[in-house]
């Protein structure tokens, strides 16, 4: 049995993350906004008694803001909350290499290393596999201060 992935959409992008990295899918997570942070940073929430930074994935990738569920990601490099629009479900489809349009993968600061060239095709949708470790460690994701480059 292969690795299962959680398929979701954010800001018009169809994405996928390994299901083992998702601890919980929160339907409505109360988030407290933090002043002086970027607009794609939603704020801080509490999940299972622990602080959880929540990021708007649609806005982070330079698309429209996401208003749906919050994925609680628990990776070895840290925890984070990703607010997405729609959660499609789990998929056991194999990962394939598909040439992608670069414009769809460009972030507001150019090419985002978290978006890999691998993807999962489910229901005629192409979900790009999100590299969670690279995302959580990327400077763009970690730098949430406003007016900072």
């Amino acid at each position: 049995m292969g690795t299962r992935h959680l398929l979701f959409g954010a800001g018009g992008l169809s994405l996928a993350v390994p299901a083992e990295l998702v601890k919980t899918i929160h339907e409505q997570l109360t988030v407290q906004a933090v002043a002086g942070t970027r607009d794609w940073f939603r704020g801080l929430g509490v999940a299972h008694g622990k602080l959880l930074p929540v990021t708007d994935m649609g806005a982070f990738f330079g698309r429209r803001s996401s208003t749906g569920h919050t994925l609680e990601i628990a990776a070895s490099v840290g925890m984070s909350g990703l607010q997405v629009d729609t959660v499609y479900g789990l998929s056991n489809m194999p990962i394939s290499e598909i040439p992608l349009n670069r414009q769809n993968t460009a972030s507001h600061r150019g090419e985002n290393p978290a978006l890999s060239s691998r993807a999962i095709v489910q229901d005629e949708r192409v979900h790009r596999l999100l590299d969670v470790a690279a995302l959580l460690q990327s400077p763009a994701f970690l730098n949430i201060a406003e007016n900072s480059h």
Binding site: R4, L6, A19, E20, V22, K23, T24, I25, V87, G89, L90
Partner: peptide, 8 residues
């Protein structure tokens, strides 16, 4: 989904 995720 959460149950499945937690089960897995």
């Amino acid at each position: 989904l959460n149950t499945t995720i937690r089960a897995s």
